[in-house]
Write a protein that binds this DNA or RNA. Structure first.
Lengths: 201, 201
DNA sequence: GAAGGTAACATACAAGCAGTATGAATGTTA
DNA sequence: TAACATTCATACTGCTTGTATGTTACCTTC
């Protein structure tokens, strides 16, 4: 059999993955506006024609990268959360926060997900992508917490937005702080304060 | 005296103000990347040379616009807060939140301040500009609250960041919601929950 | 298994944009 | 008033995105 012979779908998937991977690295390092399509296709070892065949434009490629990053993040957060599942709502939330702050050492998360994301694809679509991943995760945890009587009954969606906003800001705050260890401890304390505020007296 | 004769500083200030005003309108409507310098100078009735004399580049012009918007916001928030100053910490914070959500009907705030801001000038500088205006305001209120025993003693800076993050997210959430009245009420409730959590038992 | 068709790319091109360089006009200062 | 500085105007260059067109490899149908 001929090793070089590959199906169309395989070829397509390969180049698509190469493009998303290359774009992810470059966007993380230099931001969306700072990297041209030429640099991306060179990094991915494909042609510009391939890029514009796979994606409608540069923004759509970014959206794919965003989805990719979110998928990684939500997978890792889910691990951290489920590891603390037995310890109750506050423990689950706090271990997710710790894991999140850990993840945010990587520039992918900061720049692609938090800084450029809203601006490039628009806020609504940004949060929609977020919704399909980590925001949905939070909402599940909140529902379980309410079912278990650990969280005061209230609308889940706005609450989840507020919580994720705190987490996002915490990540950027820690990243920008001169002493990240101190900043991190402070932000964890603030987060704990807010999370415990949800527990009925 | 000759009416047409004007000092250099006056001329310079006039064109600068015209540029910032025009850029503010256009950035608010179409985003930073969506509007070219040509459109800006046409709207401002000056030449491109004037723009690049006043500002190092397009990004610096955006930074000036950002500062302008922040100044407006902080002024109006300060009014709202001081109007409720007698009613104590929670009332001050909540009236500021109400005023904030009211302000965020305008696209200036949403797009320039919340969406494009971090991406265009970078997160650190974005928050630094914010610090000089509304973030500093929050910190003053928090300090007063702590001094009056209405707020639990804790590091002020990270807490102020967390609070402003909730406010920002609330604004975008309300703006994107199909029924903004409901979304607004929900977000106010969430905010109140967090703010009251700061009051010692 | 051949032929037509289609998906996946490759390349060349056009339009738009940011930033610069150079020059002119108007205040400012010695 | 004459040299100088500031403020602006215009022309130009290089880069980038997106498109239009051509080419190759696979797939389907008979």
């Amino acid at each position: 059999m001929n090793v070089k012979r590959r199906t169309q779908a395989e070829r397509s998937a390969t180049t698509r993955i190469a493009l998303v991977g290359a774009a992810r690295r470059l966007f993380a390092a230099q931001g969306f506006a700072g990297v041209g399509t030429e640099a991306i296709v060179r990094e991915a070892s494909v042609s510009r024609g391939a890029l514009y065949h796979q994606f409608a434009d540069k923004t759509e490629l970014f959206a794919a990268v965003l989805d990719d990053v979110e998928a990684d993040v939500s997978r890792q957060l889910a691990e951290a959360a489920s590891a603390a599942a037995e310890a109750g709502f506050v423990a689950v939330m706090m271990s997710a926060v710790e894991a999140w702050l850990e993840l945010c050492d990587q520039p992918d998360i900061q720049r692609i997900l938090l800084v450029d994301g809203p601006s490039v694809v628009g806020w609504a679509r940004w949060r929609e992508i977020c919704q399909r991943h980590v925001l949905g995760l939070i909402q599940v945890v909140l529902e379980q917490g309410m079912a278990a009587g650990e969280v005061a009954r209230q609308p889940i969606v706005p609450l989840s937005h507020a919580l994720i906003a705190v987490a996002d800001e915490a990540a950027m705050y820690v990243a920008a702080a001169p002493d990240s260890a101190v900043a991190r401890a402070e932000m964890v304390a603030v987060a704990r304060q807010f999370v415990t505020a949800l527990v009925p007296a």
